[in-house]
Design a protein around this nucleic acid. Structure first.
Length: 234
DNA sequence: CGTATTTGACCAGCGC
DNA sequence: GCGCTGGTCAAATACG
């Protein structure tokens, strides 16, 4: 997990607090319909917080967040305001996404999702998960699987489903934060291979968060970003 | 035999 | 109030 990189998960979560709902976007740039361009840390950066084991093998192509702050470049949108945004997909096409801040009335405190190109549904993220449910959802032709962290006292949950628009992608949504280290996480991450400054995390995160320790993140994340293959497409 | 997964039932929140 | 939907529970089942 992230701790293997020298940054504790608590600090990690503090640096990149998970926004809360469901807008896909391509890192590091998201364009609101207002025309404002908002920048985000690389998906690999967020992934290292919430997906500590996976960055050594495959970083997510996109991550998404629900936060209405995206709507107008910083200010929160109205609760039910529909916002439209776009991102550039694998083929260089600009894809539009839209949604509202609502989440069926439920308001997760810490939620973040990743869209990862993968043939397997369940990605090894360094944590041990126990499946507790499967549900067909109306918004997608693919079933959604529900997992809960197996660690005692850890209430983190995740949902896994195939992208409705492109089944090559797996959408994994994490809900909550781990209060423990990933079992065997250290062994999962390939050691940094001398890569520095390949990617520059954006420190002026648009969501209302404490200032991210950019320098630390930069160093840590660059190593991660360069440590895995370049198959991911951002 | 212990543990993980499957799956139908149940529950809660929201919109109409 | 009712129906719809997403999320969770828990008994049954599968697997190592």
């Amino acid at each position: 997990m992230a701790t293997s990189l020298g940054l504790g998960h608590e600090a990690c979560y503090a640096a990149y607090p998970a926004p809360a709902s469901s807008y896909f976007f391509s890192s590091p740039e998201l364009v609101a319909d207002s025309g404002a361009v908002m920048e985000f840390p690389p998906a690999a950066a967020m992934a290292d917080c919430y997906f500590p084991g996976i960055t050594g093998a495959r970083a997510p192509d996109y991550y998404y967040s629900p936060v209405p702050v995206f709507a107008n470049g910083g200010a929160a949108a109205a609760e039910n305001e529909m916002v439209n945004m776009s991102y550039v997909d694998d083929d260089g096409r600009r894809m539009m996404v839209s949604g509202s801040a609502g989440n069926g009335g439920r308001r997760p405190s810490q939620r973040i999702g990743f869209r990862t190109r993968s043939e397997v549904d369940v990605l090894d993220d360094g944590f041990k998960w126990r499946k507790y449910g499967k549900k067909a959802v109306k918004s997608s032709p693919n079933p959604r699987n529900y997992y809960r962290c197996s660690a005692e006292g850890c209430g983190v949950k995740k949902r896994v489903e195939r992208d409705r628009d492109d089944e090559r992608y797996v959408v994994t949504t994490y809900d909550g934060v781990h209060n423990h280290a990933a079992p065997g996480g250290d062994a999962l991450l390939a050691p940094p291979r001398g890569a520095q400054d390949v990617l520059r995390p954006v420190c002026s995160a648009p969501w209302s968060a404490p200032t991210a320790p950019c320098d630390a993140w930069g160093t840590q994340l660059h190593a991660v970003a360069a440590g895995h293959s370049s198959e991911s497409s951002y």
